Simulated assay, not measured.
Amino acid sequence: MTLKQASQLLDSHQYPTDTERLIASHGDYTIDLPNGTETLEEVFNRVGNETYESSQQAQEAMYNGLSSKAIGRRHYSDRDPTTMGTFGPDQISF
């Protein structure tokens, strides 16, 4: 399941709810991530026991609970600052 599908799944849940109920209802669903998979149970266990008044709050908790499997290259940015004393690369227009 994609993250978008997981968000839609959380939309279908009845609110207010808490972490334990979300895990009981949807914890066995597996999310496909760029560097592996995680179940919703693993994700929500990282967040801790919370009460969610809406699906938006549950979705934000899900995104916050994702591990480093959800990101591409760790510690990489193509937005590194220009070294002091240089002017950096020329701007490129696409």
Rank of each mutant, 00 (worst) to 15 (best):
D78A: 14
S55I: 01
I92H: 05
D28M: 08
R74A: 09
Q56T: 12
Q56V: 12
E53L: 11
L9P: 02
T82V: 14
H75P: 00
Y76E: 12
V47H: 02
T2K: 11
L10A: 04
D90T: 13
F87Y: 13
T19N: 11
T39E: 06
R74C: 05
T19A: 10
G65W: 00
T82K: 04
Q14I: 09
N64L: 06
S93E: 07
S67T: 15
Y76C: 06
D78S: 15
P81E: 12
D28T: 12
A70F: 00
L10F: 08
D80Q: 14
Q8P: 03
E53T: 12
R74E: 09
E60G: 07
F44K: 08
H13K: 05
A24T: 10
S68K: 12
Q8Y: 13
S55A: 15
T2H: 05
E41D: 15
D90M: 08
R21I: 01
M1H: 11
T82I: 15
Q91T: 14
T86Q: 06
H75M: 11
E20L: 15
Y63A: 07
H26F: 04
S7V: 15
L22S: 01
Q59S: 11
T51E: 14
S93C: 10
E60L: 12
Q57E: 15
T37L: 03
P81D: 10
S54T: 15
S68W: 06
L10Q: 03
I92K: 04
N45P: 05
E60P: 03
I71D: 07
T30L: 07
L10H: 03
E50D: 10
Q91R: 15
D28R: 13
P81F: 08
T2P: 00
A6Q: 05
T19L: 11
F87A: 13
Q5H: 11
P81N: 08
A61Y: 01
T2L: 05
Q56F: 11
M84Q: 11
T39L: 06
A70S: 02
E20V: 15
L40I: 10
Q91W: 14
G65L: 02
M62V: 07
A61Q: 02
T39H: 05
Y52I: 08
R74M: 09
S93F: 10
D11K: 09
T83V: 11
S55C: 12
G48L: 12
Q59E: 13
Q14W: 04
G85P: 04
A24Q: 06
T82G: 01
A6N: 04
I31C: 01
N64T: 06
G85D: 06
P81V: 12
S12C: 09
G72N: 12
R79W: 08
N35T: 04
E20F: 14
L33T: 00
R74Q: 09
E53R: 09
Q8E: 14
G65P: 00
Y76H: 14
G48C: 10
P34A: 02
D78Q: 13
G36P: 01
R21F: 03
R21C: 03
T30M: 07
L66W: 00
Q56W: 09
A58M: 03
F44E: 06
E41I: 00
A61P: 00
G36T: 00
T30R: 06
E53Q: 14
S25H: 02
S68I: 08
G85V: 05
T19G: 09
G72H: 07
D32G: 04
